[in-house]
């Protein structure tokens, strides 16, 4: 049967011999059976145990906390039912944060996917110094969001920032990056895009390279140009990848915290909540106002938002990738 040439087994120096006498019956065999039966469960248990304790339990317990008065210092208080949800849903901060979160998410994910696909198409050619370019686009990935945010909040300073200075050179009025909601969303989305566009481009690149080349050849014969090929072959074939990228960025993007938190030195998302996101709101309720009950209510609502968005996302991306 198999002639093993690989290092791992060779080190043990023996091979299965057909005529090996049966030994170690009894206890060791029974142990062997247990070994076979239990080991798999043992091996997968770390994940399940840890997930149960640090993932599942906290999520469920969040629901419990959300129905109680719960001060960070004083601990659990009275059962209040859905009071915290009523409060949060009735307060403008929640809706403004929701608006900001979605706006920042859209501003970061949509352009990001488009640019990443374009970038992937550029990389998917017979480039000189291929590895250099691929590594180059990935560089921002290793910069921590906290550092990215410190740098960009400086670049986007309202009066003494480089971006406004540059805009001034081409005659554009200074943009109020820290005052105007939409402008602040653009600035924050820029930070997200800075870090992730190259990363996603590489994912798309890998997917592009897996597309069978004969598809292009037959299209070529049919007289389709490169642009046409891109839209009629590449994009549809990338559908699963687009869905994948969209879903992962939904889960992460809607929980955005680092970038808006460090966009100014207060970290509360602006005096008019211009760029307050749901996670910042959650933090503010829980750790600034000490109200764990309300913070938990926001956590659950955000959870629902993410689920809803994931579903919408799935439907929309399917749709988009289907047309063609």
């Amino acid at each position: 049967m198999s002639t093993v040439t690989d290092a791992p087994t060779r080190t043990r120096g023996r091979r299965p011999d057909d005529d090996r006498p049966p030994r170690r019956i009894g206890l060791s065999q029974r142990l062997g059976t247990w070994d076979v039966k239990l080991s798999p469960y043992l091996y997968i248990s770390p994940f399940f145990v840890l997930f149960a304790i640090t993932g599942l339990f906290p999520l469920l317990y969040t629901a419990y906390v959300s129905m109680h008065d719960w001060d960070q210092i004083m601990g659990q208080g009275e059962f209040v039912g859905l009071e915290h949800f009523r409060f949060v849903l009735g307060h403008s901060d929640f809706w403004v944060s929701l608006r900001n979160t979605i706006s920042i998410f859209l501003l970061s994910s949509v352009p990001q996917v488009l640019v990443a696909i374009t970038l992937a198409a550029l990389l998917d050619s017979n480039l000189r110094a291929r590895t250099f370019w691929r590594m180059g686009v990935l560089l921002p990935y290793v910069v921590a969001p906290v550092a990215v945010s410190l740098i960009f909040s400086n670049l986007f300073a309202d009066r003494f920032g480089l971006v406004n200075a540059a805009l001034g050179l081409i005659g554009v009025e200074p943009i109020r990056w820290h005052s105007d909601p939409l402008a602040s969303h653009v600035a924050i989305a820029t930070m997200v895009n800075f870090r992730w566009t190259g990363y996603n481009a590489l994912i798309f690149l890998a997917a592009m390279q897996a597309i069978p080349r004969d598809l292009y050849e037959s299209a070529w014969i049919d007289g389709a140009g490169r642009v046409r090929q891109f839209f009629s072959i590449t994009v549809p074939m990338l559908r699963p990848t687009i869905i994948f990228v969209a879903i992962t960025s939904t889960i992460g993007g809607l929980q955005i915290f680092d970038e808006p938190r460090l966009f100014d030195q207060y970290g509360r998302g602006g005096a008019g909540s211009q760029w307050k996101t749901l996670t910042i709101y959650l933090y503010e309720l829980g750790w600034t106002q000490s109200n764990f009950g309300r913070a938990s209510a926001v956590a659950w609502l955000l959870f629902l938002v993410i689920v809803a968005f994931g579903l919408v996302n799935l439907a929309v991306t399917r749709r988009i990738a289907d047309t063609r």
Partner: peptide, 18 residues
């Protein structure tokens, strides 16, 4: 918390103009 809220209110008018 209250002082933060009123500071925000003032900032919205004075700084942001929103």
């Amino acid at each position: 918390v209250i002082n933060t809220a009123i500071q925000d209110a003032i900032t919205r008018v004075d700084v942001d103009g929103s």
